[in-house]
Structure formats: structure tokens, C-alpha cells
Design a protein around this nucleic acid. Structure first.
Length: 952
DNA sequence: TCGCTCCCCTAT
DNA sequence: TGAGATAGGGGAGCGA
């Protein structure tokens, strides 16, 4: 749908504007490239399966929609019979959730009342779908045992807490009889602070349901009294862990891992009608081909190594809808009908979709390479599509903005038309897909209003959401994104004529169907090109969270998952800290730049993975943080701990090795392994997986620091984060001093080296050599030499040479980038300048880019001035395409926000002048200088009219 | 005109 | 109840 993408911000740039005059008759002339592509799929398939006798591209009579003969490929491959006693069941787990249900005979855990049951959905190697009910895992948390507590007190404690929680419930509609299932004494240690490696008695409190943990925790914190112990407040540990994560951590399951159910250890559910209630075993409740019950401690989880790195033949469904809107009004599901739904289904790992189909309202001429299903009633169209989804049974559902547009629209439309069988899109019988509003807020992404639709067992993987998270783009329309990544455009249909096309004939509707099909096809292509599914799967495996968390949750949960896994091995428990924003802490140093244009090579030295390596080098962790009062109490000598630049104390690894350094070492060594494997691997698909993994490992390592500094988070620790940045500040300062003290004329070098700039983990050094090669050689030597002053694994590395280099200000510079070859530059590198910022119009970015090229590549500042003047004169004479003046932005922003933005042409002039002046300047010095042509173009893209103002 | 705050978006 | 961090340039807008 085009409407949804028109919602925010101006529509596409000049290309579509220019084609406005295109006549509708032109369409029928020749098939588009995309149509030819579709036809090609068909040819390939005809060859491959000529015996199947399936006429894939015909218009199918609706009555035969789901007939096994006609749409054989819709269904999953036949599932061979499974004998639980002699067959093991192995599947890749893709989605994991839990529900409250009745206990199943023969399974561990509570037998009475509602019990939490974990549910895993997955796919076998042969492409069969699996739903696995996991029984017997109950939620729990810890509190420290009070002084004098013994086994004799357990029963009393449990009874008192149980009745307190029951009393606390306002209503008890589930008729819960027992809230506290068990209380046990266990030896644990808090992970916060170092306290002499002495485990203490903790009470492990097991609850009947996940939602009972919060009240139990609250009651214990508020002050709890039992037996003759005084009323006291109990600090809760691990009471804020999602139940899914709790289960995964405890059973060593990570996201998207392979699960093995050994023979004899599971039970297969049978198809059973509602009336047959005689059996003590429940029948199937899902649409999956295999549905099984297993005890939580009987399942085997395979770490993603060796053969277990493979990926099952998942079914990925991409779809797009079109609605017939009214002129100039955003379509409303209560009024405007859905006229087409295009769907493409692809198996993960295959090149092309094997199902290409479009459901249309009214007749539609055939399209070679795709199946057209025509309906005279919209109601039937919707219902059939829902049945199509259930038949195809996809593991992953994708599309462009399906989360906030297509799915909500379909649900609302189906509700309006009373298509009662529509909203069951998940894999669980009778579980209705409902629309909910949710808002997601983070400092990183700002406030995001989102809609959610539940679809148990299917992963919703909206490509737009992926792009918003992972890529900074100027525009997020499907058209712009496709052009950016695939150099391909959408089919050319203006959204304003969609209704006209629908009301035309079967040829105009065919035109619309081709457009709709392409909109379903492009997301698949993009997912493939960007390796989204593989990368996300690897991230889920590395961090241990379910795949769905990666799109629905923030960064913290990934660190929590790893931290809990590591902590469990050492019997450490994580406290629940109350979250309140405190003082900000000091961050990194940015060395005052020696602004100027440098026509000599500038070497850049970088600390690789600075913050992770600081944490590893100095053993910074929650578990090693030492309170000053504890030094004497624990009888520590000064050799046992260090004092960080911020004055915080941490014990050395000889006393206790920190969890965070351990996690980081694992991540970074796993990354080294992945990179080594990547080099050896020849299979392109496995290569993608490994590359995805090394990327996931790198990102994960870098997010550990952020987690400790997140003051509104699960476990903030400012002592760690401020010590990390403190060390960083010290190190960059020392690096500057070391380099400038050794590389001097008096030490026999050509010139006195000068650090002209540096930010956080890098320094730019003018070494005084004339060639790039010399700068590289000397840079490498300097990096190695400086590294010797720091604790491993901290390492300063030579990264690149800039030649020439234009240093405009802090965080704003440009230069030609030489990394391996001293003869040829890799690219022109621009940082912070208008060319890389998305809040400038293309004219400004292009102009500055050209000026920088003139200055840096051609070494022709006069050319830059000439170019700038030319553009300005074009601007004044209205010779600039309006699209150049419009700031195209992501659709989440409203057009009003762009109003009043200014395009600043003068910056190009400033660059040029700066080259001449080669000295420090301010805005006003340039402004008041006698520069001949300084203009400022102010524009209002909302009205799409540029207003020009002559400033000089 | 200057100085200030707020906002956006970037660098690391 | 869920959200990685700080540093910093530079424009817009406002008041003195």
C-alpha cells in the first residue's frame, strides 16, 4: 500500500514528480521488467516439476482454492508418522512463549489448578512444523535468608508468604489455591559488590505463576513478618526476569537453537475433536504438524556449533494489501475496502519464492508466473486469505509496515465486515489475533507508537521495523529503500489512481496486481540482500534471547540474558534495583582540534574495542566492585585491588574474575573464531551465517558498557561506566603525550609529531612525513610502541591515513582515506558534515560533497568556489529541481516538523574560504568577511516552495 | 547582535 | 516496568 507510506513527510523526490504526466494507456504496452522476472520463475518451475501438472499461473476457480491437487505447494511437506518411543524429534526452535493451562498427566510440576507451560514452535530439517509444550518449569526468585533462619523455618515462611499473597489479590478469578509452591535454602552470592567470595544462605521462592512474583516481591520488600522473626524488608533477587528468559537460561536454550527430544521422553498429541474428552491426555491445539509434550528437564538443547549452526527450511511469507481509498483521504478500514492481497512465500535459503499469488476483488487478467484468485465478495477474499495463511503455515511473516498498517487494516476490515473466521492467524486453534496499541520509548529511538497483533508461533518480521532499527536512511519509503539497497524501483503506480484502476477493467486491475505483487516481493529481496533473518538469528543465538525479542525489546535484555547465564555458573544472583535517574557521569574526551586544511598525510591510531578492552584489562564488574568500607573488613591489601581514575575500587582478577570481563572475553574470542572460520568457509550460505555471527558478537560486546551506564535499567552501575570512561580519558591523553614526546626532531625524526585531533578512542597525528607510505609505516610503529604502555588486551592500532585532511571542528572533518594501499585512496571519508546528515536537503549535501571532492581529490579550491557560485545562481534563477530542496525523511515524522528548516548553502562557501584562510574562524568572521556571494536559502518543504534570501 | 535554550543528529 | 552511554556541532527561536 502506498497510502501508509505517504503518511509522514513529503512523498518521493523528483523522479516520481517528473513522471506525473504519464498516461494510463502506456501501461498495457509492454510487460515491465518485474513481469518478465515473474514469468521466468514460472519457466524454471515448469521445467523442475513438469510431472506435477500444476498450472501455477492460471486464474483458479475459487471453489477449488484449497484442493490438494491444485495447490499442492501451499501445504507443508507431508509429515511422516512419528513414534515417540523409537524416534527422536529434532527441530529448530523459532518462537517461544508460555501460557497457563492444566497440567498434563505424566508431566512434572504442580498437578492442580493452572500451571505455566512453555511452548516452543519450530521446524524440522524436512520442513515440518512443530509445537512443543514444555512442562514442569515454575517461576522463582530469591531473597537473602534472615539471620538465624534454618530448614525448620521453611514451612512457616512458605505458609505466611502464601497467605499474604492470597490476601493481597483483589480478585482471584483463576481460583488460585496455592501461590507459593516451595521455599528452599540455597547458597548464593549477590553479584553486586565484592564481598570476599562468601556464599550466603538465600531463600529460593518458587511461585505458581509468573504474575505472582511481583506481588510476592512487593510484600517481602514492604516488610514481612513470620514466626517469631521481626518484621523486616527483604531485598529481592531475580524477581524481574521474564519467564521466557528464566526458562531459557535455566534450560540452556538460546534463541533459534536446535532442540532434540530423545526417544521415549516425549508424548505425541493426536488430532481430537472437542467431543472426545475421554482421554486423560490433551489433543492437538495447534495447526502444527507435530505437537508434543515434554518435561522441561528432558529436552536437549544443542549449542549453535558445527552442524547445529544450520538453519531449517523456514517458510517466509511476505504480503501486501491494496485498499480503494477515497480521494485525498487516508483509507479507513471501517469504510474503504481491501481490494487486493499479494503474497509471496519463500523457503529460507532458497533464491526465489515458490508461492506467488494475488487475491483480487473482481476479475483480473492473468499474470504469467503468479496465481490470481478472484473474488466477487470482499468478505470471501479476506476469509480465503486467512485460510491461505493457515494452510501455508509460515514461520515468519514479513512485508513493509505490516505491523502498523496491513495487519491492523485487515483485522479492522474483517471486523467491520464480520468475517468471523479471519482473525485466527496464529498457530494455536481458537486463539484470536487482536490488535493492541503499545508505545515503546527509548533514548535511542525516541517514543514510538506501535500496534501489535498476536500470532502465536509465527514471527512477525516487519522489514520497516528492521530498517528503522538498523539503518540510518534519508527516507524509509519502500521505493527509496529498494532503490538504495537494490537499485530497483517499485512498479510505477500512483496511489491516487488505485481506486480508478480497481473500478476499470480486468486489465487495469491486472496492472494493480502486478504492483501489489512487487510490493510483496521487494521485502523478500531486501531481507535476502541485507541478510536480516540470518543476522537476527545469529544475534538470538549469541545473546540467548528469543528472535521476537530482538524486534520488540531494547538492548538491555540481551545483556541480562548473557549475564544470568554467566552468573548461574558461579552461583551468583542478580539483585532487583529500583530504577531512578541520577546524576549524569563524565564521558569521553574530545581533543581540541587544530582546525585546518592539511596537505600532508595524517595518520590515525585507534584503540580497538576500547571500552570492552578496558573492562577486561582492569577486571571491571559488578562482582569486583569494592566498597571502601569493605577493604578493612575483608582484610585486603593494596595489591589486591585497583583504584580507577574516578576513585572507585575493584578487586583484581586474582581475587575474583569478573562476570563482565568473562562475557566479553567469550564474545571476542568467539568473534575471532567466527572470523577464522569465515576465512576458510567456501559455501556462500554458511559464509553469510558466520558473517552474521561475527557482527552479532561485536555489537554484543560493545553494548555491555552501555548496559552498566543505563541509569533507567535493569542493573545500572555508574562506578563501572564512569571508571571505563575515566580510563579512556586517561588513555587518550597519555597516547597524545607518548606520541608527541617520542616522535621529535631531537629524537632523530623528520619532524615533531603533533596530535591534531582525537575523539574517545582515536588520535589523528601529523607525523611530519611527506608520503602516505611513510605515514603508514611510522603510524604502525607508533601504535605498537604506545600499546606497550597499556595493560593487555588494550591495544592501539594503526588504522588509516588521511591525505589530504580537512579538519573543520570537533566531530566534523573530511579526508581521503588510505588504509591498505598507499597509492590509491579507498574513499572520501566525511564525518559530521552536512553530506552525512539527514536534516539537510539533497542540494546542500550534493553541493558540499562536490566542493569537498574539488578540494580534496582535485585539489582545486577555485573549482569548488566556482561550483558553489553556479549552484547558488541556479538556485536564485529557479533552475533547481524542487526535489533537491526537500528533506525526505522517515515516515514516522510529520510534515510539520520539517517546516521552517533551512538549507544552508553557505557552508560550502565556508569550506572553500576555510581552505584559503587555513586558520581558525567563527561563523561571524566568515559572515562579516567580504566574501562576495553568501546566500542563505530558506525553504519550507511542507509547502514545497523555496524562499530565497540574499544575505550579502 | 548576542547569548541562551531546545532540538536534531551525528561521532565514538 | 520498559527504555545502551556521553560529547558536541549547529540551526531555530526568543528575549534583552
Amino acid at each position: 500500500m502506498d497510502f501508509k507510506r505517504r503518511n509522514g513527510g513529503p512523498a518521493m523526490g523528483g523522479a516520481s514528480q517528473a513522471k506525473k504526466g504519464k498516461m494510463s494507456t502506456e501501461w498495457e504496452d509492454s510487460p515491465s521488467q518485474f513481469e518478465e522476472e515473474l514469468a521466468l520463475f514460472d519457466d524454471m518451475e515448469m521445467e523442475a516439476e513438469s510431472e506435477e501438472g500444476q498450472a501455477g499461473h492460471d486464474v483458479i476457480p475459487v471453489g477449488d482454492l484449497f484442493s490438494a491437487d491444485l495447490n499442492l505447494r501451499w501445504k507443508r511437506p507431508h509429515a511422516p508418522p512419528l513414534q515417540p518411543n523409537s524416534d527422536t524429534l529434532i527441530f529448530q526452535q523459532m518462537d517461544l512463549d508460555y501460557y497457563l493451562g492444566s497440567a498434563v498427566a505424566g508431566m512434572p510440576g504442580q498437578v492442580q489448578g493452572k500451571v505455566p507451560i512453555v511452548r516452543m514452535f519450530g521446524v524440522t530439517d524436512s520442513g515440518n512444523s512443530v509445537c512443543c509444550h514444555v512442562h514442569g518449569f515454575a517461576p522463582y526468585f530469591y531473597v537473602p535468608a534472615p539471620n538465624g533462619f534454618t530448614n525448620a523455618h521453611l514451612a512457616e515462611f512458605q505458609r505466611e508468604l502464601n497467605s499474604a499473597v492470597l490476601k493481597d489479590m483483589r480478585s482471584n478469578k483463576d481460583n488460585i489455591a496455592v501461590t507459593v509452591l516451595a521455599v528452599d535454602i540455597t547458597k548464593k552470592e549477590s553479584m553486586y559488590h565484592y564481598h570476599g567470595n562468601k556464599p550466603h544462605d538465600f531463600l529460593l521462592i518458587t511461585m505458581a505463576m509468573p504474575r505472582l512474583i511481583a506481588p510476592a516481591k512487593r510484600l517481602l520488600e514492604q516488610g514481612f513478618k513470620f514466626a517469631n522473626f521481626a518484621t523486616q524488608s527483604y531485598q529481592a533477587y531475580e524477581a524481574n526476569i521474564d519467564f521466557e528468559i528464566r526458562f531459557m537460561v535455566d534450560s540452556d536454550v538460546v534463541g533459534c537453537c536446535w532442540i532434540e527430544l530423545p526417544k521415549g521422553k516425549y508424548r505425541l498429541r493426536e488430532e481430537r475433536s472437542e467431543l472426545q474428552t475421554g482421554s486423560k491426555y490433551p489433543g492437538k491445539v495447534s495447526l502444527c504438524q507435530y505437537e508434543v509434550d515434554v518435561a522441561w528437564n528432558d529436552l536437549v538443547s544443542h549449542p549453535a556449533e558445527g552442524e547445529w549452526q544450520r538453519i531449517a527450511p523456514l517458510r517466509v511469507l511476505s504480503f501486501d494489501i491494496e485498499c480503494a481509498g477515497r480521494k485525498g483521504v487516508f483509507p479507513e478500514p471501517e469504510i474503504d475496502p481491501v481490494i487486493q492481497i499479494a503474497s509471496m512465500v519463500q523457503r529460507q535459503g532458497e533464491k526465489e519464492p515458490f508461492i506467488r499469488t494475488v487475491f483480487t476483488l473482481q476479475s483480473c487478467a492473468s499474470i504469467v508466473g503468479s496465481q490470481i484468485l478472484c473474488f466477487t465478495q470482499e468478505k470471501l477474499l479476506l476469509q480465503s486469505w486467512a485460510e491461505f495463511v493457515r494452510t501455508v503455515d509460515p514461520d515468519i511473516i514479513t512485508g513493509y509496515n505490516i505491523q502498523n498498517f496491513d495487519l491492523p487494516y485487515l483485522l479492522n476490515r474483517a471486523a467491520t465486515l464480520k468475517v468471523n473466521l479471519f482473525p485466527y492467524l496464529g498457530r494455536v486453534w481458537g486463539s484470536k489475533s487482536v490488535l493492541k496499541d503499545s508505545s515503546f520509548q527509548s533514548k535511542q529511538m525516541g517514543r514510538r507508537e506501535n500496534k501489535t497483533v498476536n500470532m502465536e508461533g509465527r514471527v512477525q518480521f516487519d522489514l520497516l521495523q528492521v530498517l528503522l532499527r538498523d539503518y540510518k536512511l534519508r527516507s524509509y519509503t519502500l521505493n527509496a529503500v529498494s532503490f538504495h539497497f537494490l537499485q530497483e524501483q517499485k512498479e510505477d503506480v500512483q496511489h491516487s489512481i488505485i481506486t480508478d484502476l480497481q473500478n476499470g477493467n480486468e486489465q487495469t486491475r491486472r496492472r494493480l496486481a502486478v504492483y501489489c505483487l512487487k510490493d510483496a516481493y521487494l521485502p523478500l529481496r531486501l531481507l535476502q540482500k541485507l541478510m536480516c533473518i540470518i543476522n537476527y538469528m545469529e544475534m538470538a543465538r549469541v545473546t540467548g534471547v528469543p528472535l521476537t525479542y530482538l524486534l520488540s525489546r531494547g538492548q538491555q535484555i540481551k545483556v541480562v540474558s548473557q549475564l544470568l547465564r554467566q552468573a548461574m555458573k558461579q552461583d551468583l544472583v542478580m539483585p532487583v534495583v529500583r530504577t531512578e535517574g541520577g546524576e549524569d557521569y563524565t564521558g569521553a574526551t574530545v581533543i581540541e582540534p587544530e582546525k585546518g586544511y592539511y596537505s600532508v598525510p595524517i595518520a590515525t591510531l585507534d584503540f580497538s574495542s576500547l571500552y570492552p578492552s578496558i573492562m577486561m584489562a582492569h577486571n571491571l564488574c559488578y562482582t569486583t566492585l569494592l566498597q571502601k568500607s569493605q577493604v578493612e573488613k575483608l582484610g585486603l591489601s593494596p595489591e589486591d585491588f585497583i583504584k580507577t581514575p574516578t576513585g572507585d575500587l575493584f578487586v583484581k582478577s586474582s581475587m575474583r574474575k569478573g562476570l563482565l570481563p568473562e562475557i566479553l572475553e567469550n564474545l571476542l574470542s568467539a568473534r575471532k573464531r567466527a572470523k577464522a572460520e569465515l576465512k576458510k568457509e567456501t559455501d556462500p550460505f554458511k559464509k553469510q551465517v558466520l558473517d552474521g555471527r561475527q557482527l552479532a558478537l561485536k555489537i554484543s560486546a560493545n553494548s555491555v558498557y552501555g548496559f552498566t551506564g543505563a541509569q533507567v535499567g535493569k542493573l545500572p552501575c555508574l562506578e563501572i561506566s564512569q571508571s571505563v570512561t575515566g580510563f579512556g580519558r586517561q588513555m587518550i591523553e597519555q597516547t597524545k603525550q607518548h606520541v608527541e614526546s617520542k616522535y621529535t626532531i631531537s629524537n632523530g625524526y623528520q619532524a615533531d609529531a603533533k596530535v591534531i585531533y582525537g575523539d574517545t578512542d582515536s588520535v589523528m597525528v601529523k607525523l611530519g612525513v611527506a608520503t602516505v607510505q611513510e605515514a603508514m609505516n611510522l603510524g604502525k610503529e607508533a601504535a605498537d610502541w604506545v600499546s606497550s604502555y597499556f595493560v593487555p588486551p588494550i591495544k592501539l592500532e594503526f588504522e588509516k591515513v588521511y591525505y589530504p585532511y580537512l579538519l573543520i571542528n570537533k566531530k566534523r572533518y573530511a579526508g581521503l582515506y588510505f588504509s591498505s594501499n598507499a597509492e590509491h585512496h579507498d574513499k572520501m571519508d566525511c564525518k559530521g558534515i552536512e553530506t552525512v546528515r539527514r536534516d539537510n536537503c539533497p542540494l546542500v549535501a550534493n553541493l558540499i560533497n562536490t566542493c569537498l571532492q574539488n578540494i580534496l581529490i582535485d585539489r582545486d579550491p577555485d573549482g569548488a568556489v566556482a561550483h558553489a557560485k553556479e549552484v547558488i545562481s541556479d538556485l536564485l534563477c529557479n533552475r533547481i529541481d524542487i526535489s533537491q530542496l526537500v528533506i525526505t525523511k522517515e515516515l514516522t515524522r510529520t510534515a510539520q516538523e520539517y517546516a521552517g528548516k533551512q538549507a544552508h548553502v553557505e557552508l560550502a562557501e565556508r569550506c572553500v574560504w576555510f581552505y584559503y584562510l587555513n586558520c581558525e574562524f567563527t561563523h561571524s568572521t566568515i559572515w562579516s568577511s567580504s566574501c562576495p556571494n553568501l546566500y542563505c536559502a530558506s525553504l519550507n518543504p511542507y509547502w514545497a516552495r523555496a524562499k530565497l534570501r540574499v544575505c550579502c
